[in-house]
């Protein structure tokens, strides 16, 4: 029940974030959605993910407000396309109606398919401490049973930082030299 309230509030926040004209209030409603998601994780008893969500949300908000929000760009100009909104609403309704039969086949909320009998999830819960020695099962899954996945994540982060630095670095040597030449000619 509480999770439903949180989900509805999150959907309202997401709507406000996309529909408002002031970029600052849009960013703030994105932050509200993130904190509600953090509450939802806490309610579902996943403190690891809740901590990660909270911390990353705060940093992302700071970066969004401080680094991308400038005086010149705080308001969205121009008319909103009503035809596009109509089309997207139509698409949402059609997809929802078509996916109702599939929703009925999904397992009930809180009863995942993998938790029955001799499954991987049960194996992690029962043998996690004995196999790895880590009291936190989440960490033992992340850094022992599934360390290959974590290595992939770290590679993705590393590559994306590399790309961001390559795009946003100082002006290249060639441009600096050209500027020096121009100044020397003057």
């Amino acid at each position: 029940m509480e999770i439903l309230v949180l989900l509805i509030l999150m959907i309202i926040g997401a709507f406000i974030a996309t529909e408002t004209r002031d970029l600052l209030s849009s960013v703030i409603s994105v932050g509200a959605v993130g904190f509600l998601l953090c509450l939802a994780f806490l309610y579902l008893k996943a403190p690891d993910i809740a901590i990660t969500q909270m911390v990353v949300e705060v940093l992302a908000l700071i970066i969004l407000i401080r680094a991308t929000l400038h005086r010149d760009l705080t308001f969205v100009k121009g008319m909103r396309a009503k035809l596009g909104l109509g089309f997207s609403l139509f698409a949402v309704v059609v997809v929802t109606v078509l996916s109702i039969p599939f929703f009925q086949d999904l397992p009930k909320f809180g009863h995942p398919l993998l938790s029955e009998g001799r499954s991987v999830a049960n194996f992690y819960l029962q043998e996690g401490l004995r196999k790895t020695g880590a009291a936190n099962i989440t960490t033992s899954v992340l850094l022992d049973f599934r360390m290959y996945d974590t290595l992939g994540e770290a590679t993705i982060l590393f590559t994306s930082i590399l790309g961001a630095l390559a795009i946003l670095r100082r002006p290249s040597h060639k441009k600096v030299k050209e500027k020096d030449k121009e100044e020397a000619l003057k």
Partner: peptide
């Protein structure tokens, strides 16, 4: 827990340094 604390330290160093760099660049 064997190598798990070492991996945690490595990931902590990596994530902290890289996110700090992204913020400075932005």
């Amino acid at each position: 827990a064997g190598v798990i604390p070492i991996c945690n330290l490595a990931i902590g160093l990596k994530v902290g340094a890289s996110i700090f760099m992204v913020f400075i660049i932005l």
